[in-house]
Amino acid sequence: MTQAAPVPAISRLDGAQLHRIRQSIDYFGFHCLPDAMSSETLEELAREARCRRAEAKRAVSESADLPYSSRVAPLGPSAIHVLGNMASAALLEPVFGRRFRYCPDASCYTFFEAGDFLETHRDDASNCEVTLLFYLSASPFRPDEQASGLNLSIYANDDDAPGALLKTIATPQGAIMFGHGSRFWHRRHRLQEGEHIWMLTACFTSADVPD
């Protein structure tokens, strides 16, 4: 295994660009940064994800609290290296202005394929205050399918329940999504035939919170 190269295109952003990202997260809870991974990092993490897909377990819930369908697999050495050693300092701290610690128990490779979905929810702040989603493999975005799972839909908080749709964000391969999913309601609609998104789902909590 080679060590994944440093991730962030964010290190090349100027102050004005970072300010726009912070504003987007303040208003909508999420911001997608296209082409944020180096080609070496994308290739290495995607290779690891392909290997993990073969052993991924079906994750299905029909609970009224949070229905969902996907496949999940534990992270491998490349993902753990990226998340544990540099993701907070290189990616989260510039955007959120403080350090976070990686939560391995809440992080995994997630595979959404045709028929899979994730209903409207907010993340558990105790182990997933903020999220990084690394989009490692994704079918091409189809603009005619606004309700497709190729999009992430963000909703307003209406008396502690999901309210009006705030924004729909496409999720292209090679992008990194920054998420304040513990504060903002979000949803991935059911993927259509021929669609897929394979991602590294990484959860973080404040570094100031004791273990």
Rank of each mutant, 00 (worst) to 15 (best):
T2W: 11
V7K: 00
P8D: 13
P8F: 13
I10V: 14
S11M: 12
R12S: 08
G15I: 02
Q17A: 15
H19I: 10
I21H: 04
R22W: 06
S24Y: 07
Y27H: 13
F28H: 13
F28S: 06
G29Q: 07
H31F: 14
C32S: 10
S38I: 11
E40L: 10
E40I: 01
L42C: 04
K57D: 04
R58Y: 08
A59K: 02
E62V: 13
S63A: 13
A64V: 12
P67W: 05
Y68H: 10
S69F: 05
R71V: 00
V72G: 00
A73E: 04
P77V: 10
I80D: 02
V82N: 01
G84P: 02
G84M: 03
N85W: 05
M86L: 12
M86T: 11
V95Y: 02
F100Q: 03
Y102G: 07
P104A: 09
P104K: 02
S107L: 07
S107Q: 11
F112Q: 01
E113W: 06
L118K: 04
E119Y: 03
T120H: 02
T120V: 15
L133V: 14
S139G: 08
P143E: 12
D144Q: 15
D144H: 14
Q146P: 11
A147F: 11
S148C: 06
G149N: 02
L152A: 07
L152T: 07
S153K: 10
I154D: 00
D160L: 09
A161Y: 09
P162Q: 08
G163W: 08
A164V: 15
A164T: 15
I169C: 09
P172I: 13
I176C: 11
I176E: 00
M177N: 11
F178D: 06
F184Q: 05
F184V: 09
W185S: 00
Q192V: 09
E195V: 01
H196A: 07
H196F: 15
M199G: 05
L200I: 07
A202I: 00
F204I: 03
V209W: 13
V209C: 13
V209Y: 12
V209T: 15
